[in-house]
């Protein structure tokens, strides 16, 4: 469920980047304060571990399809939320850069969906709450399972929000969500099972590791309210900044939402989203000829100055010019390559 650059608008991408960057800074500061100098190599190696194991698939019982470990929850349990978050960011970054999984702009979204939720929400609010003070095997396994499922559900919901707010695809909110949540419930259960099985294995092999992980970090240290306030503040500030920059560009709806509401209100389905939803539902209900364009403002607004539009002559010009430019780009690339190989020879 990696978001891709092609599906993110700069507003959403930029906002998620700002939030993620804030969280990276915050977590780095926390790590520095902890001044446990074992952490740095530990984080690196654990990141490499998660990266490697994500490529190992196992068979999902009774279905024949396969799944793999997400890693966020295992990291949080073993490293604590701050280090786990940074490590998760790193894993996602390597994936974005080497496998083109996601992309640079969408990295902010992915960090938020796959790093923030497991580390800062699911771990402290679900896992730790269930495990409580007396770490027993049963509790740990149950907690790992539930927390992994919930973390992924939140992440999936966030993907839906980000996609819909970006407005690059026509996917309407409600059906998209109805598609994503159950799929990720299934994936989450699988991931949760894998996480739980791994936790169980370590508990059996080296209980001291799990005990140490359970004891060392009192929950009080992770200030959830601080993190939440920080995110809210970044959201408002960057939302404002970005909209100021881009107010000339008609990315319409999502701007309105971010400007007036900030992320939080999206959850409450406030006016902006409500209007949006009604609109979308209208469309899905009457698919065929009731032109999608009843969002009349959207396409009209969104006609950029670069696309003077529906006139066939301009379309033809655009097509011809596009082909020519593309050819030119390819030729330049080829010429440079030719020169290089000649140099080499």
């Amino acid at each position: 469920m990696h978001m891709a650059d092609a599906l993110v608008s700069p507003a959403v991408g930029g906002l998620m980047w700002a939030v993620s960057a804030g969280l990276i800074g915050y977590s780095s500061k926390k790590i520095k304060e902890e001044s446990d100098d074992r952490k740095i190599p530990l984080m690196g190696v654990m990141g490499a571990f998660v990266f490697a194991t994500q490529m190992i698939n196992f068979t999902i019982p009774a279905t024949g399809s396969s799944g793999h470990l997400g890693g966020g929850m295992v990291l949080a349990i073993l490293l604590g939320p701050h280090a786990a978050f940074l490590t998760m960011v790193s894993v996602l970054m390597v994936q974005a850069m080497f496998f083109a999984d996601g992309g640079l702009l969408a990295l902010g979204c992915n960090v938020f969906n796959l790093g923030f939720f497991p580390c800062f929400i699911a771990y402290p609010l679900i896992y730790r709450k269930i495990v409580g003070n007396q770490a027993s095997r049963g509790r740990m396994v149950t907690a790992a399972l539930i927390a992994a499922v919930m973390g992924l559900q939140m992440g999936a919901f966030s993907v839906v929000l980000q996609t819909v707010c970006s407005g690059i695809t026509e996917l309407p909110f409600a059906p998209f969500m109805l598609l994503m949540q159950p799929i990720h419930l299934a994936i989450g259960i699988v991931e949760g099972l894998a996480t739980a099985a791994l936790i169980l294995f370590i508990w059996k092999a080296r209980p001291e590791i799990m005990l140490a992980a359970a004891e060392k970090r009192p929950l009080g240290k992770i200030s959830i309210t601080k993190v939440a306030l920080g995110i809210l503040a970044t959201t408002l500030v960057t939302g404002g900044l970005l909209s100021w920059f881009a107010s000339s560009k008609p990315d319409g709806l999502e701007w309105a939402m971010f400007n007036t509401a900030g992320l939080e209100e999206l959850h409450n389905r406030d006016q902006a989203l409500h209007a949006f939803l009604d609109d979308l539902q209208g469309k899905t209900a009457i698919l065929p000829d009731y032109g999608f364009k009843s969002t009349a403002e959207a396409p009209k607004n969104e006609e950029s100055p670069n696309w003077p539009a529906v006139d066939p002559a301009t379309s033809l010009a655009g097509l011809v010019g596009g082909v020519l430019t593309l050819l030119a780009s390819i030729i330049i690339g080829l010429a440079l390559r030719r020169r290089k190989t000649q140099e080499l020879e």
């Binding site: 650059d5 092609a6 993110v8 608008s9 700069p10 991408g13 702009l105 407005g167 690059i168 881009a246 560009k249 008609p250 990315d251 396409p299 969104e302 006609e303 950029s304 670069n306 696309w307 655009g318 097509l319 010019g321 596009g322 082909v323 430019t325 593309l326 780009s329």
Partner: peptide, 12 residues
């Protein structure tokens, strides 16, 4: 990514 969603030629 900052182009609007109906942009084709300007991206080329």
């Amino acid at each position: 990514v900052s182009f609007d969603k109906y942009t084709l030629s300007a991206l080329i």
